[in-house]
Design a protein around this nucleic acid. Structure first.
Lengths: 194, 194
DNA sequence: TTTTAAAGTTGATGTAGGTTAAGAATTAAT
DNA sequence: ATTAATTCTTAACCTACATCAACTTTAAAA
């Protein structure tokens, strides 16, 4: 059942009866993404939130030199979208790409708003989700302001132990906020000191 | 009327009738804060969101060296709280302080949750508020990863033109993410080049 | 009004992390 | 299985910003 994971995810925060679950899942579309498929391109309007059930996506922006900066990884059980663009329905600056063969559930902005009126409890669910996302994001900002690259890497390893082996090092480096070269040196050093 | 500002703020996103407005404002407490008053201390549990109607507050954390890092300023018409602590009701890491004589409206976590059931529309209001906050925060993270201190300062000046003159330079420096010394040099240079 | 403390500035020097470049190791394509 | 492309690593050098210290200015206290 492709909806098991998302329903279990929701049930952590709100209770839905069978009819409500059905209403909810009726608004979802399943989509398979091949590796390197671009799900959302910078400059486009983000029309869907994606809930990952298999594989892994990443979201990133370009800076003025054209360098990519990874903003988030989305392994199974995570949502990903360009929140700015999704909310404003203006062209965004984030590109979202499948890193491997992935499966996602799509919830369109329109469907989401319909669901808010049909099942008001979902407003609570998404509020809580957004709150958690905000807190995580604030913590990351704090970490970027107060910690060294090495400390941020350690936090990353602890928080996403499963991702470390599957992700390309350059993507981890970018998420941490350093160049691949420095990341490589950093790791070589920390291996030596163990 | 101390509630005018907050009611106007709310009315941007949802409509409340007179009875609902009354119910809402009944859950608020007014508080005056003298300059340098600490409204929330790192290590404490955050029990209130504060909506500023006069003056200005700032939120900051300490790093392991004891250096302060300003996370946000809250001029009138802004909310401020330690979201992590407020949501989890665990001791937080943020200190919130009045920079000048300020007046705030307090909404306790408990009152907020009561309001969600009494006036479900407020769930929407706070969802939207949190979404906006998340987007702003993500943008700030992107700016920190992709821009120089000078570029971040320019953005700050454009975004908060009124604050530039009232805030202490060391607080702006901290918000931007540089030392007061470097901030000073940066400004000296940019004045020279004008 | 004078004193004291805090904030801001300027200079000399240090460092985390960036850049450029070239080779080694993987991975993908033929 | 080879070739081609991408990713990763290592090294030399570079820059944005930090640190420390002394001085000046501003603001707060007495």
């Amino acid at each position: 059942m492709p909806f098991d994971l998302i329903l279990k995810n929701i049930s952590k925060y709100i209770g839905l009866d069978e009819a409500e679950k059905k209403t909810f899942t009726n608004h979802l579309t399943t989509k398979t993404l091949n590796p390197k498929t671009i799900f959302l391109k910078s400059g486009e309007v983000c029309k869907y939130s994606a809930f990952v059930i298999k594989g892994c996506l990443r979201g990133y922006t370009y800076d003025k030199n054209g360098t990519e900066h990874v903003l988030d990884f989305a392994p199974p059980d995570w949502w990903i979208a360009d929140m700015y663009s999704l909310i404003t329905q203006k062209p965004g600056f984030i590109t979202i790409e499948a890193l491997e063969e992935s499966e996602v559930l799509l919830l369109s902005k329109k469907a989401q708003e319909e669901l808010y009126s049909q099942i008001p409890k979902l407003e609570r669910f998404f509020r809580i989700l957004t709150e958690k996302s905000l807190v995580a994001n604030q913590q990351r900002l704090i970490d970027n302001m107060t910690l060294t690259a090495e400390e941020r890497y350690n936090i990353f390893c602890n928080r996403y132990p499963t991702l470390i082996n599957t992700l390309a090092k350059k993507h981890i480096a970018s998420y941490i906020g350093v160049t691949p070269e420095f990341f490589s040196r950093m790791r070589a050093k920390s291996i030596r000191n163990n």
